[in-house]
Amino acid sequence: MLEIKNLQVNYGPINALKEVTMTIEKNKINAIIGVNGAGKSTLLNTISGLVDPDQGEISYKGRQIQNIPVEKRVKLGIGHVMEGRRLFKDQSVHDNLLIGFYFRNPKEKRRNALLKINEIYKQFPILGNKQNQMAGTLSGGQQQILIISAALLSEPDLLLLDEPSLGLAPIIIDEVYQLLEELKSKGMTIIISEQMAALALRISDVGYILERGQVVKKGDRSYLKSLLDSDGLSSVYLGKAKV
């Protein structure tokens, strides 16, 4: 599905990503785990095209995409839910969905915009009830649902989610995760970034641990879980316990 080879991104003198190589298989949930500043967002931004890599290749469905602009990658089926619950807070819920639908779909499908959006309202009645409210007035969880819904309107094959659980109550995180699992069952490939390892491992099939821009560990869920249980991850987050 997605092949990343030797990816390197520099912000001025800092190496945000160093020689990152990964193979993302179709129809799997992949977790990128790491602390703040480890390079998770940079990695996702580079895949979606918001950040240009200094080196390396990204191929998607067998096609080199590192030189294609963001808007075109979207049309190729890469959806991106950015970090920090970004949406057009000064526009209504409905307009956010409309923008999410309109520009990513070919002309013939645009006629169905309202139909598609109504489907979303059916699935998430809360959005339907608040469709004329400014997006900024929604609660954090509702905003996250709205963002993911907007991303889904383009029917992506590969969905990138950057810390979707950030600042959400546990019960809403459960909801979001359930949604992701549903999407996976419909055949979508998902890459999710998370600060909290245990959380990410709840749903992911494969995990990558990123430290200072490098992949330090990778493996399937059971391997990473064993790492978590043996305190190997705890120290990454909470420091080496002083006894």
């Binding site: 049309k75 000064d90 923008i99 520009f103």
Partner: peptide
């Protein structure tokens, strides 16, 4: 309005 509010988000939404 979207471009002025958040150009990155706008392009992720497919807006040129």
């Amino acid at each position: 309005k979207a471009v002025s509010f958040d150009p990155d988000l706008a392009s992720v939404m497919g807006i040129k």
